[in-house]
Each structure stands twice: as C-alpha cells, then as structure tokens.
C-alpha cells in the first residue's frame, strides 16, 4: 500500500472503524485512542498490506484492540442488568433506530460487535468470522441470538408489542 492509498484508507474507512468501535464500547475517547493505535499499526506495516485488504485489516485490528481494552476494563453491562431509567428515556423517542442503539448497548460484547459489522458494514458471515476470529457458525449464532435479544428487549420495555 502506498502513502496515497494509506491516506485514502484514513479518509474512507476512518469514520467506519470509529463508529464500529464507538458503538461497541460507547466511549468516544477510548474509541479515538483505539483508532489512533490501529492506524499507527497500519502505518508501521503499510508496505506489507494491500489496499484491498486494508478495510478488513483495520476492522480486525481495531476489534482485537477493543477486546484488549474491554478485558482490561470490565465495565460491560449485561443484558440482564440494564438500567430501566435510560430505557424509559428511549421509550419516549419514537425513532426505532435510536431505541435499537440503546438496546444494543445491553448486548454482550461479541454479539454487539458482530451485529454492528453485519448491519453497519454489511459484511458477510465469513468476513465477520475473519475479523472477529470466530467460526462462521459462531457468527451466525451470535447474530441470531443478538437479534432475538434485541427483540425481547424492545418487547420488554413496551417499545414493541407482540
């Protein structure tokens, strides 16, 4: 990858990787740090990576870095221990997308990441498996379970009715 291609990778994928990381960990500063580290890593091995593979490489690297950060800081909220007050705030918001993002925060980290990669970036299961280091079957399972959890969450908070 040339310097020009690297700059293209910054301009083209920077926001994508950022929003994936930010929506996964919900911390702007940490997300920015992770992206910074990821691009520094990319710059160090810029000659070894092809531009076509840069996006997947960035997502993989950012995901791994994010997992490290999450492991260090075990402040993840499980879906069972959500705070009702924030949900009721979201309930007033008629935008389903907004509510879904609130619900997403309550999903386990892996489910959240695979759903984000699937919905935000439109990756195939195989590509998601490659980024996250899971098998394709695991990715499918996480996505389906995540969808069911999101739906149950919306029903539980009366945003959706069965």
């Amino acid at each position: 990858m040339t310097v020009k291609e690297y700059n293209n990778a910054v301009r083209e994928f920077g926001d994508h990787v950022y929003r994936f990381v930010y929506r996964s960990i919900k911390d702007r500063h940490r997300a920015a740090d992770i992206i910074q580290d990821t691009y520094e890593k990319l710059w160090l091995c810029v000659t070894e990576i092809e531009y076509e593979a840069a996006k997947a490489w960035l997502f993989t690297s950012a995901y791994n870095r994010m997992i490290d950060v999450i492991r260090k800081d075990s402040r993840l909220i499980s879906i069972e221990s959500y705070d009702d007050t924030s949900i009721f705030a979201a309930e007033n918001d008629s935008d389903l997308n907004e509510v879904l993002h609130h619900a997403l925060e309550r999903l386990p980290g892996v489910q959240r990441s695979v759903i984000l990669l699937r919905d935000y970036e439109g990756y195939q299961y195989r590509e998601i498996a490659s980024i996250t280091g899971l098998t394709e079957h695991q990715v499918k399972t996480y996505i389906f379970r995540g969808r069911v959890a999101l739906r149950n969450f919306l029903v539980k908070t009366s945003v959706w009715h069965e």
Binding site: V3, Y6, N7, V10, R11, G14, D15, V17, Y18, R19, Y22, R23, A32, I35, Q36, Y39, W43, L96, N97, L100, H101, L104, I115, L116, D119, Y120, R147, L150, R151, L154
Partner: peptide, 19 residues
Amino acid sequence: QLRLIPCNDRWEGLNGLLQ
C-alpha cells in the same frame, strides 16, 4: 425491522493521521 442504521458518528482526529 431490527436493523441498525449507522448514526452520524464522525471521527474528528481523522486528518491528524494523514501522512
């Protein structure tokens, strides 16, 4: 219907990484 639509999350430090 349970599909997430990307929000307008922008990374402000993008230009700082251009080489």
